[in-house]
């Protein structure tokens, strides 16, 4: 797993790349905690996210809670059909704002 971070418009743009399992989810969680404290508006690019287990979902949940507590914005985009299904089974599709691509995520209204 790798994470890349950049900027687009008023957003921090975060790309999660590869496989997130319980072995590396702790480092993702630490990163998400730091990101959630530092940023207000975040887009997460999941186009290169191949795999995520429940512990990785937990790291995203940590970020979402931090952002919601301060009234920020968190949008996910370009989830593969398999990852989309995992989100649905976990019931996470109700909490996360999920968009088909970067443009849709970037241009959505708050």
């Amino acid at each position: 797993m790798k994470v890349r971070e950049g900027k687009i418009d008023s957003f921090a743009l975060v790309e999660i790349i590869g496989r997130v399992n319980s072995e590396n989810s702790e480092s993702l969680k630490n990163y998400m905690q730091e990101l959630g404290k530092r940023e207000q508006r975040i887009l997460v690019d999941c186009s290169a996210l191949e795999y995520i287990s429940s512990s990785g979902l937990g790291a995203l949940l940590v970020l979402l809670k931090l952002i919601q507590e301060k009234g920020g914005t968190l949008r996910l985009f370009s989830l593969s059909p398999r990852i989309t299904e995992v989100f649905a089974i976990a019931g996470f599709d109700k909490f996360f704002l999920i968009f088909p691509n970067l443009e849709a995520a970037r241009l959505a209204k708050d």
């Binding site: 287990s53 429940s54 949940l61 809670k65 995992v86 089974i89 976990a90």
Partner: peptide, 22 residues
């Protein structure tokens, strides 16, 4: 409880839930 509100959601137990559903 996958219908629980965000503030109530915990990651514990989610793994076995995924296993059953997958």
């Amino acid at each position: 409880d996958i219908t629980a509100a965000l503030s109530e959601r915990r990651v514990g137990g989610l793994g076995i839930h995924l296993v059953r559903r997958l």
